[in-house]
Design a protein around this nucleic acid. Structure first.
Lengths: 162, 162
DNA sequence: ATTCTTGCAAAGCCTTTGCAACTGC
DNA sequence: GCAGTTGCAAAGGCTTTGCAAGAAT
């Protein structure tokens, strides 16, 4: 969406394939999984499981709900996707070929705004070190109301006064 | 746990009472709610709904599951508790009489380590301003492995080599 | 050939809700 | 007495799972 993509040496598909092959018990790369990965990485955006399933139907890809759930979970393990739990909803976000970033979430329209901040990453690194904590990842979610919703509410308040 | 408590002018119970009374449609403060608030704020710690319910039973407080859920939700609205979604589990954390803080979560033993960092709060304020985003709160969760679990794993690795 | 994956429907899990009885205010 | 709350059990929403059939290596 707003941030530039990273250069990556492997396609998500290749990376996933490699991940599956390198497991203690090698797992298989199936047609459904290939369709899913290609579909998900065709463009960068966040999505919920429900949205993805609807999307796949529109694209005439026949992949069952169970397989979508099972594959998403593997993609997270493989480091291709990141799972974001925001309130009631669970979103998935590209974690490969895309820089680490944080989110502002509008509590009204659910819009997600991405941003990057080296200061935050450094702060996390420092506090982890101080606690001898070996960190593997983080999630920062800032809740609030976005400009548009704010304007809409301000307008509504003015109208209410008439 | 690790951070000092804040001085607060009202007890959590009083604050909750006031919150309920100040609603557009005033709500009632019941015996079950009083027991719950007292129990929860008797000492500072995080808890899941399930833990709380078990705890209440041990304390011979008869409060139904439904009432626990309903009251927790009101306590969050009242600003007394904060809801923390970490992976599969939902925790509640004191949000009144306790400073804003972030969490390191051990993925092995589930231990929570709290820390404070003004730099993070400032970074969030700045990025919100830059996006004209009116922020109301944030959640930062750092995942990883704590010292103890790290040591245990290192020891295990050494033993495996024998 | 063997072992893993898929799809279906059923089961699970946590949370919410409808309703009658009850209780603060 | 009125309006909000409780407890129960049933319903919800999302996710996982057992199993037989199918597919990848």
């Amino acid at each position: 969406m707003s941030l530039p993509s990273l250069q990556v040496s492997q396609s998500p598909e290749e990376k996933f394939r490699e991940f599956l092959a390198s497991r203690p018990r090698p797992q298989r790369f199936t047609g459904q999984q290939r369709d899913l990965v290609q579909h998900i990485f065709a463009r960068h955006h966040h999505f919920t499981t429900e949205q993805l399933i609807r999307d796949l139907q529109s694209a005439n890809l026949n992949i069952s709900r169970a397989t979508v759930y099972r594959t998403l979970s593997k993609l997270v393990d493989a480091g291709l996707l990141r799972k974001l739990e925001m309130g009631a909803d669970t979103y998935y976000d590209h974690d490969y070929g895309y820089p680490q970033h944080e989110h502002l979430v509008c509590e009204h329209c659910k819009r997600l705004i991405e941003f990057q901040d080296p200061a935050i990453e450094e702060a996390i690194r420092a506090v982890s070190e101080a606690n001898q904590f070996q960190f593997s990842g983080h999630t920062l979610i800032v809740r609030g109301v976005c400009v548009d919703c704010n304007r809409a509410r301000a307008t509504k308040r003015m109208l209410d006064l008439i």
